[in-house]
């Protein structure tokens, strides 16, 4: 949609061309802000992040710190298919795959690193995941650290279930479910 804004281009009148009254008006505005904020600092909308955070609007909740979901036996749901690493536009995911000796799922991520300093929080990894293993719903906003290494998340830092998980609802991996059932863990 193109919106049209009519600009009032009338020539300046004498007082305006003098500048001084206009300058005084401008000073009045800024001075008012100055004194209002000086005597009522609570009105300033600044949030002291990271000590202080705002409740997130709904759409933003799906774009918070990543987590890897965990199966009932404590293994990651991730099967190291590399789809997230492939989809990632910021190249912030690093995976190294390994093989289970017994679990018929066969493949798991021995290393799963996300460099939040590089991440652009686009959520493409979540979209790409065929196993519903990665999610960005921790409601934690990364940042506000003093050390860059604090933004590098390893596998253990990522593995986390929310309350009510793990559930088999939506679990796409038949082999994993069979395995858990056979061990009485599902």
């Amino acid at each position: 949609m193109i919106s049209v804004k009519k600009v009032d281009n009338r020539p300046l009148n004498f007082l305006e061309r003098l500048y001084l009254p206009e300058i005084a008006r401008g000073l009045l505005v800024t001075t008012r802000h100055f004194f209002v904020n000086l005597f009522n600092p609570k009105g300033i909308p600044t949030v002291q992040y990271p000590e202080q955070t705002l409740p997130l609007p709904h759409a933003a909740r799906e774009r918070t710190r990543h987590r890897l979901k965990v199966r009932a036996d404590g293994s990651p749901k991730c099967v190291a298919c590399f789809m997230c690493q492939t989809a990632c536009p910021a190249y912030c995911i690093h995976i190294e795959a390994a093989e289970y000796p017994d679990n018929p799922v066969e493949k798991y991520p021995a290393v799963f690193d996300i460099d939040l300093a590089r991440c652009v929080m686009c959520g493409m990894c979540v979209e790409a995941c065929p196993e519903d293993a990665i999610a960005m719903d921790t409601l934690e906003i990364p940042g506000g650290v003093l050390d860059r290494n604090a933004l590098k998340l390893g596998r253990e830092a990522l593995l986390r279930n929310l309350a009510g998980e793990p559930s088999l609802k939506g679990a796409s991996n038949r082999l994993a479910n069979d395995y858990l059932k056979s061990r009485g863990q599902a």
Binding site: T30, T31, H33, F34, N37, L38, P41, G43, I44, P45, T46, Q48
Partner: peptide, 10 residues
């Protein structure tokens, strides 16, 4: 500080 207060910042 003055510029911050004038611009509703801290």
């Amino acid at each position: 500080k003055v510029s911050a207060l004038m611009q509703d910042r801290i």
